[in-house]
Structures are given as C-alpha cells and as structure tokens.
Write a protein that binds this DNA or RNA. Structure first.
Lengths: 208, 208, 208, 208
DNA sequence: TATGAATGAGGTTTCATTCAT
DNA sequence: CATGAATGAAACCTCATTCAT
C-alpha cells in the first residue's frame, strides 16, 4: 500500500474502471434515457455487479456528472486550436460551429438529448454544465469577437449578447435536430458554412 | 345521453375539468419538474382525487401532451398577426422573436424546462411538439423569408436552413437562460431587438 | 367527503387497518425480531400489500412507535386501580409488580425483547418509551411511596431513587427472564409476592 | 510451523490482532450501535483491511461474542476480592452493586446498550451472556447469601429468587439509566449505598 | 362521475462476505 | 498473513394506476 508503484497501479486500474463504467453509462443512457436506465442496466453493460458501480460513483446522478467531466468533454469545447492569429472571420466561425455540431453527431445526438434533458431538471448538473461546457464555449467565442471588434472588423455592439446568440443558435439547432427535424438531418454537414455566412453577413441582401 | 343539449353540456363540463387539471399540472410541473411531480400533487392542486385525473387523461405523460395541445400553445406560435403586408424586415423579425421569448418568461422558464426536458426523452412527445409547436413556427417564418426573398429583399440562399437557424437561436437562448445564465437574464428584454439586428445585418461591420 | 357520517366511517376503517397492521407487526416482530423482520413479512401477515403499510405508518420504526402508543400499552402501566386508599403496603407493592410481570408473560416476553432491544439503540423510541411507559410507571409508584412516607409507614429516604430501584428490579427480572433464566421461568408467578416481601422488609433477619 | 517457539509467537501475534480488532469494535459499536456499524468502520478504526477482520472472526456477530469473552468481561463480574471473610452485609452488598454500575459508566453505558440490545435478539449471544456474565454474577452472589443465611444473618427464604432480584435491580437500573433517566444520572454514584440499604433493610420503617 | 384505499412492481442503495493477488 | 476490489442479495420505500363503492 505504501509502495508507490503499487499505488499508482491501483490508481490506474481505478481510472480504467471509472472509464469502463462511464462508457457503459453513456451507451445505455443514450439508448434509454437517464430515468429509464437502471443501475442494473449499466452494470450489465459494463459487465460488473451493481454494487461495484457505487465504489466509483456516489449515485446515479454522479454518473452524469462524470460524463461531463473535462477529460470526456474537453474535445467538445476545446477551441485552443482556433487561436491562429490571422484566420479570417468566416473560417473561425465555421470551425467554432463545426466543433459541437459534429461532436454530438457521432451517437446520433442521443447523448445530447440525455444530458440536456437532465440538465434542465437538475440544479447541480446545470451548474456544472454551465461551468464546464457552456462557460468555456462562451468565453472562447467572446475573446474572438472582442479581438475582431478591436480590429474594427465587426461592429462592436453587445458582444456578450452576440456570443450568446451564436452559441444559442448552435444549441438550438442541436435541439431541433434532436427532435427529429428531417431537413436538418439531411443538411447537417453544410450547417457550419451556412451558419457562418448568416452570422457574418446577416440575411439582408448585400447592397451593390 | 343522446340528448344533444345534455351531450354538449357534458362535453363542456369535461372540457372544463380537463382545463382545470391541466392548469394544475402546469403549475406543479413548473414547480417540481415532471418526474418529481406525483399524480397526487396534481390532484391536490386541482382539488380532485387521484383517480379522477385518470378519467380525463390516460396517464401521466398524457398530461404533458395535453399541455402541448393547440388551445394552450397556439398563443405561443400564432403568428397570424404578423401577416401585415408591408411591415419592414426588422420589425417582423423582432416580433417573431419577441413572441416565444416572452411567452416563457412568465413562469421563469420553468415550463420550458419541463417540456423540453421530457421532449428530449420521449418519442411521442417529441413528435407532437414538432407537429404542433416547432412545425408551425418554422412554416410561419419560412413564409416570410420566402416572401422577402421573392421581393429581392434578402439573399435567397437556403431558406429552410436559415429559418431553422433563426428558430434555433430562439430555442438556444431559452436553453441558455434556463441554465441560469446571468447575462441573458439581465438583458432578456433587449434580446428581440439585438437578435433582429444580428440576423438582418450579421456581425460584419457595414462597409462605408 | 363532507358527509360527517362517511368521514367517521372512514376514520373507523382507518383505525381498524392500523390495528390490523400493528397486530401483524407485533406478531412478526416477536417471532423474528425487529431487524430481521421485513415490511413484506408484516404485509403478508396482515394480508395486505407492502405499499399499504406505508399509508398508515411512515416507516418501519413508526410501527414500533405505534406499538408503544397508549391504547396498546395502557394496560401495562395503568395503575389507577391501585388508588384504593387503605390497601396495605405489601398488597399494593405486589399488585404493582404483578402488572408488568404478567403483561409480558403472554407472548413469552418476545415483545419485551423486541421493544427493549430497539429502544436501546433508537433515540426517538427511547424518549417515547420513557414518556409513555416508564415515566407513568415511576410517577404512579412515587405517589404511593410519598403517601406512605407521609403516613410514617416507610422511612422517607430517597423516594425517587427507591422507586427507580423497584422499577429497575422489575425491568431487570424481565431482562433475566428474557435471557432464558430457567429458575425465573419456573417461579415466575411467585415473583410478585417474593419481591414485595423483599422490598418491604429487606433481606435482613427480623430482630426478635 | 511445527516449531513450538514460532507457533507460540504466531499465537501471540494472533491474540494481539484479536485484541486490536475487539478494541476497535468496542469503540465503534459504542459510538454507532451494532447494526449501524459496518465492518469497514471497525477495520478503519483498527487500521486494517476489511478482509483481515475475517481472518480472526467468523462474522460480525462473532465480534460481539468476542467482546463478551472472559478476559474482557472478567473484570466486570469478578467478585473474588469480595471473599474477605468477615465483611458486613452492607459493605459486601455495596461492593457487589458498585462493580457493574461503575464498569458500564465509563463509556456512558453505550456498550451496555449495544450488548443488551443485541443479546435480546440473538439466541447464541444470549446463551453466552448467560453463561459468561450473568451466571457467574448470580453464583457469586448466591454463595454470599447462602453463607449469611447459614450464619443466621438473613432470612433464609428463596435465596435463588432473591439473588436474581438483586441482580435484576442492577440490570434494571442500568437499563433505566441507558434510557436517559435524568434522576439516575444525577445520583448514579450514590446508588450502591442506597441500594444496599434498601436490599438489607427494605423500605419499611424500623420498629422502635 | 368522483373518490381514494389498495396494489405491487421496481429502483436505488447498502454492506457482509469472498477471494485473487 | 494482509489486502481491498468485487460481489449480489435483499431491503426499504415510492408512486402510477386500478377499481369497488
């Protein structure tokens, strides 16, 4: 136990178990939804006993929290790669939109459904999501807008509302898609480009 | 029974009961969420017995379906008043956005949370919502865009995607607000105007 | 519901159910002990569904509390009949002792075991027992001792400790009996007389 | 293995472990009660792993049995020191009472609660307690009474019932105290003297 | 039609105990 | 011998739904 090698091995095993359980949870949650999923379902999927789940997660909600934790969601909100200095507005915007739109496409938006569904109803989850996912997304975007604004490239009004509108558009489209909108499903991959144009230029016809 | 007067009286009473129960359901769902609400809660709020609920609604989910039914949600998506012929784009857009944003503000977005949360997880509910709420909203908007497009007032690309993006923006902002975003809460009433501008003009600085 | 006849009927039915459940609980608790008894056991014994128990008792502990409630335990501690003015000390003492010793004999001291066992471990139960059973017993006895003391019939020292010693003797003998002491079992019925003598005269040989 | 020195060393180590575990068990049982205590609690307190407990004790109940075993409880019931030949009745009685009353005072009667609570519900434990604690106590006391009786110092009736009444008084007072009786708590230390007088002389006023 | 007592399936969670390392 | 991760049975309790009155 005091053997550091052993200890670290234990830790790694524990981390692996956590991952194993979370993978199972994601899979089953996505299939059946949070409330319809029983611990037994997850245990079965993870090929473990019911009780074992509770060695690694305090309760069912903690599994959802676990799914939101950085290592798993980083991919979705990490926008550091966007920081290339002289990318043009349209490209950056497109990448910003592309990121979450495609991340949730993987499992047919099932995980998006589960997370958002529960977030709307669970205070703690809501706060975590705001901190760990939405917040970083907004801050990342805001930095860009501010940068462009300072460079005189965009009109400088209401940056904080603007970024929320853009993020909202992304969330909202995920929502519409999750509700089974056929049109979106058919054209999902063209969305980043279309949305980027819309945001940059608006719907108004360019004056000659 | 076959007396038409009696029959219609019955119907009216039944309709009143339904309304009474739905009102109670809305209230309690908004307070405690769908799953945390028991039939007993609703019965108590409606001043009825548990069993009576089941005379008017098949099960708990049917109550949520009931809440989405036209008479109750029409207000939210009815845009007939927008049909005034020569309103300018910005005004129409502003009205289009104002409508749902304010409708859900009444009860602090609690009903929005409940409905969306459950919609994301319940197939039947999802379809109904798409038919009865989202669909009409999209169609109404699309008609406008098409009209303007024909008049050469907006660029004619991807109207179906554009209206979805606009609707998505609205839904997404409701979502962000529901997650407790302080910035949105503080500036909620200015949103219709800001969003309308954004959508019409984009973020790009107007060329001189 | 507002019909008083109906209401009272309801109340009577409810009281009957409570009694039915408590009877079942007493029986099963006495057989298997508190912890080893499941709600299902009690429900089965009462010929009801599990859930029904919870309509009448908040939880398992409340069943034990119910058993201690006055209507059921009054018999054990009611000493009003003792208040006859000029009964001699020995007779009164004998009656005082006889009462609880015989009350618990009925079911072979099984209920005594269950109640005391749980009382020792459960704060709330302990307080209730002290209030509803032990307290009255002590007060009743104390009144007598005080009466006799004022009449110069007993030495007036430490009445409150003396009555506790007497009550303790009774409790302790119930405990020893509950532990399976054969000697006590064989002579249980002679105890009231023997104890009364001991308490009144002590063990010391009377001086000639 | 067959080396007697080694074997005895092993035995001593094992005995030390047993003691270590029992000490931990006593401590935790007294704090939380038998059922509320988990093996993990005890293991933590003993600074061992859960599984190790099972190398030394067959199961949780065996820990309670272990607590009752002679080396640990002898102190409580050992009355050999009372065997001084010509002590007067009152002094001996006082010492006899003093012994258990003070032994359990140490930990605020918590251990008494735990042991008695479980004894009342567990057959095996009950028998062990009767053999190892109650029996010796009764036999020791009986020897005295018989001695005094032969010397004509006490009335010779029902010695076996009398000693049980005395022991019962002690147990019963421990019980009352364990139930939170304030009066007893305040005067606990004067009990041995008061009780000894009561038992020797009874409550009756001495005839002049 | 309205009632609300009764039902009972089913979920979460705990924890004594085992056993491979 | 010591460890502690894993097990899985079993318990309490909730609550949607039914149905006799």
């Amino acid at each position: 136990m005091k053997d550091p090698v052993k200890a670290s091995l234990q830790e790694q095993l524990a981390a692996a178990r956590r991952a194993q359980i979370l993978d199972a949870a994601i899979k089953v949650f996505a299939q059946k939804g949070f409330h319809a999923t029983t611990i037994k379902d997850i245990a079965r999927e993870a090929d473990l006993a019911d009780g074992t789940i509770y060695k690694y997660f305090e309760n069912k909600t903690a599994l959802l929290l676990g799914i939101l934790e950085p290592p798993r969601t980083r991919a979705q909100q990490d926008m550091s790669f966007l920081l290339e200095p002289d990318a043009d507005i349209h490209s950056v915007m497109k990448a910003f939109i592309h990121q979450p739109l495609m991340a949730f496409k993987k499992d047919n938006f099932e995980l998006f459904k589960v997370i958002v569904s529960e977030i709307l109803v669970n205070q703690e989850l809501r706060e975590r999501f705001h901190q760990q996912v939405l917040g970083p997304m907004l801050q990342g975007g805001e930095a860009y807008l501010r940068h462009w604004s300072e460079q005189g490239m965009i009109s400088p009004q209401n940056i904080d509302l603007t970024i929320r509108a853009i993020a909202g558009m992304i969330l909202g489209l995920l929502l519409e898609q999750s509700m089974g909108d056929q049109t979106l499903e058919a054209q999902w991959d063209t969305l980043p480009d279309t949305l980027a144009s819309l945001i940059v230029n608006g719907i108004k016809k360019e004056p000659l």
